[in-house]
Design a protein around this nucleic acid. Sequence first.
DNA 1: GCTTGACCCTCCCGTCGCGTGAGGCTGGAG
DNA 2: CTCCAGCCTCACGCGACGGGAGGGTCAAGC
Lengths: 245, 245
Amino acid sequence: MPYTVGELAKQTGVTIRTLHHYDELGLVSPTGRSAAGYRLYDDGDVLRLQQVLFYRDLGFPLDEIAAVLDDPSFDRAAALRDQRAELASRRARVDGMIAAIDRALVSLERGAPLDDLPSLFDGFDPAVYADEALARWGQTPEFAESARRTKTYGKAEWEAIKRESDAIYRALAALMQAGAAPDDPRVRAAVEDHRDHITRWFYPCSRELHRGLGALYVNDPRFTANIDRIAPGLARYLCEAFAAA
Amino acid sequence: MPYTVGELAKQTGVTIRTLHHYDELGLVSPTGRSAAGYRLYDDGDVLRLQQVLFYRDLGFPLDEIAAVLDDPSFDRAAALRDQRAELASRRARVDGMIAAIDRALVSLERGAPLDDLPSLFDGFDPAVYADEALARWGQTPEFAESARRTKTYGKAEWEAIKRESDAIYRALAALMQAGAAPDDPRVRAAVEDHRDHITRWFYPCSRELHRGLGALYVNDPRFTANIDRIAPGLARYLCEAFAAA
DNA sequence: GCTTGACCCTCCCGTCGCGTGAGGCTGGAG
DNA sequence: CTCCAGCCTCACGCGACGGGAGGGTCAAGC
């Protein structure tokens, strides 16, 4: 005894529109049609639908569900593990947003009237930059200029600096992950962006100074950890890229 | 010194397309245009963009961002708390999916060849139903019929039963939350669906028996908790609705 | 003065999983 | 024969852009 869309919808808790959708995708197509064109689902179709809904409830996209179900040789366990990893990273992103909201709420309570203060450098205090510079470059004129200029920066500037550097790092991380060599022209361009960023915000940065900065990124675990948070191995890659420019 | 789209994109790490998008939404519109029609963003526009990106990174939808930024009297703290709650429920959903995947992986490892076994009743063993029925209805013929029939049910059937009952409960929860009275005709229809569901899967369920079931839902904390997981207060509402039918 | 290449513009279709109609047949009950 | 519930096929809409087509603009080098 075959089911019509309405009956099947009631049984499975999906809407009729969803059944239509799955039919036009070829994901769950009724075996038969009545003379008037009504969709008629038999028991096999119902089973198929339940399998689809099983994977859907696990967050799989519909095209992957089709792939899993239509290929008996598909490695289900691997698919589940992949999906688990995907969900885990989704959860991590949500956790990050929640943490950022909590930080914003705290600083709001502390009386900061602007709620756009940027929960800056999340966890990486700009003061660390200053300490680093002091320890390494001591009394160099570059440090003096940087200190003089950064002293005048407010929240807006630090926000801008962080966004800009993040953008550059992300671009370089993407190139790294795409397998671009450190002397690839696109990498060189991004490296120049970074040097320009340092020059505009901190001090005039020569290529030589820039190479030194690259060395710092791999030799100081605090810098390494912070940079590698964007992408594992990025600090080392930056060091090589800065040297190749 | 105003910025063009490309310059601003580099500074902020967004794409040019995103800037176009925000412009056509009126979310961040450049103050000026060059003679040739190029968008020219001044410092105020940049600030505005950074505020938008701040909220975007917290997961706010763009229309809410516009509302927050365009209304100075907007309660930012409340908006942040609301968004936090939204993210928390998103996180809970992802957690549920991950837990379901883990259960599926475990049963796959245990050698179950079908990966569509449904991680049934997540945490609510069907055996509980049996125990309940035994304690309450002892030797009634209804229990006998139910026991005889459910004995033959396999995974597929239990899956179907759960889906069907979930669908009915969700429909009733929606009606409850919409403020429908327990004797509302739509509620009556859904109640009949539920009674029919019991009759088809377990035992012939008269209206009287159904009322008894409703009482069980509020008097037994296990049932209450399980049902209220779908929506708080649903168990009580069901009891009233079953009585009003 | 002209070409080149990098930049900019405005449409406009595609994504993903359906929701939500519009406009029109069909099937069983009264 | 008439109702009304239920079915059908389009087809647009959402959210936040991605990406490309087709075409103007700007600074630099020849």
